[in-house]
Design a protein around this nucleic acid. Structure first.
Lengths: 259, 259
DNA sequence: ACCTGAACACCGTTCAAGT
DNA sequence: ACCTGAACACCGTTCAAGT
């Protein structure tokens, strides 16, 4: 094997000729190179392999261009600019194009449910939340939409902002909680099973110390199914909306959701 | 300037001799090398410069050891192992060593307040949340503590878990929302001011389109002060706890927090 | 058996040379 | 003026050679 031969997957388009010019297929561009195409490629790569797998060079190779062309075509100055563009395309997906319910509670519930669904498909979005500022046009549209949802809530500006923040942060937190971390370290199924086994043994040893009585009763939390995670989300969202409603306007509209 | 001369900050301890042996200070170890010292160095580096600045090589240089020694001394197999250790030391800080209040609402409030305070000091923790599984011993102790907080809540296991999840996810989400992103890209004060100016102009242009009436009324959100962010957190936490209480047990205990 | 220097296979980004 | 190959200064991790 040569020292640094192209490894197929990551082969650059500048790799030297194979076969004859006549039979060699032209590097026909699969998609016209635009900022959108570049960002779309980055998003789908991140969806599939996580944020760490994003590299300018890999995206360039995927789009059959040179690494540096990504900078000039997407008009980005750094990888962080690319991240900002990725964040914003996800924000676009969170917009409720079908319109907002009139009632503020239903409107907030609708945005929260939609946001969570979108975030579950793009787990890396949450990884980026702490590092980047959300000011892209679609982030702004999303914020405008959420503010519109509570526009007829008769409370002062600060409270309205706290309401929006409460629902948004709850939603993001739930998404972070529910995200499937199975794909971590790109483990194979076999390696994953082995890892799970090690975790099991380790946790049982901890439980055996007797220092975790409540945890022992509660059982394994990582095994919570996607359906249960969604139930947990819907329950919590109702509690939060009930809480906002009763705290701001008294108890008249609350429903019991016990069991 | 030589091609790859050590740049001071990142100079390796294996850099060749300067001056005489007799006057050259011995590479006296500042702290005895242990797993704890390695993790502590990583945590403080991440606190100061963000998660991306973490590299095995930099940590090694800081501790005056070779990069590979980090692996053998900390008994880690990969950078991800180091991340897991970092996560867990933060979990340790979230434990309420002073004990839990008896009332479940006060107990949950206390854990949430403490967690948020800790997370604000270690913003990178949230960046890692989506990629790693929280199963370290201190993460387990934290979970045990939260479960203990709701141990005398007379609801079934699934509901109790949803309560814990609701408060935890809200707290993490609020911390993510409130984290100071000023340090992004290690910009200088001047570069930061310039960037802020650009953001201002950009946002004003967006507002001028008239497509963001609610946003225009609400004003600039990024400028929210740490104090206001804390108020927003406390308000939302009260709403959530009120909501849980009234939804599960009826309205008797709720207080109005209007204005 | 343990430790580690050198090497490998990547990075993001700069820059100068080419068109 | 625009584009880009080569170079620079990093990475994490493997591995073989040294003790």
């Amino acid at each position: 094997m040569p020292r640094s031969g192209p490894t197929g997957k990551r082969s650059s388009i500048s790799s030297k000729a194979v076969g004859l010019v006549w039979t060699r297929p032209l590097a026909k561009r699969r998609v016209p190179l635009t900022r959108e195409a570049i960002v779309a490629a980055a998003v789908s790569l991140a969806d599939a392999e996580g944020l760490d797998s994003i590299s300018i060079r890999r995206i360039a190779a995927q789009l059959l261009v040179r690494p540096m062309s990504v900078y000039s075509f997407a008009q980005i100055e750094s990888k962080e600019d690319l991240f900002d563009l990725m964040i914003d395309t996800v924000c676009a997906q969170m917009l409720l194009t079908e319109g907002l319910p009139k009632d503020w509670r239903e409107a907030l519930r609708a945005t929260a449910v939609r946001s969570r669904a979108v975030l579950m498909r793009h787990p890396w979005w949450i990884d980026l939340l702490g590092r980047r500022v959300l000011i892209g046009p679609n982030a702004m549209r999303y914020r405008e939409q959420t503010l519109a949802a509570v526009a007829d809530l008769h409370v002062d500006k600060g409270i309205r902002m706290a309401v929006v923040a409460a629902v948004e942060t709850f939603t993001v937190g739930q998404a972070a909680f529910a995200v499937d971390r199975r794909g971590l370290s790109q483990k194979t199924d076999r390696a994953f099973a082995q890892w799970r086994g090690a975790v099991e043994t380790y946790q049982q040893a901890l439980m055996a110390t007797g220092d975790f009585p409540n945890l022992a009763r509660a059982g394994n939390m990582e095994a919570t199914s996607p359906e249960d995670l969604e139930k947990i989300f819907m329950l919590g969202l109702d509690w939060l909306l009930n809480g906002i409603s009763t705290s701001l306007f008294g108890a008249q509209k609350t429903r019991r959701t016990d069991q």
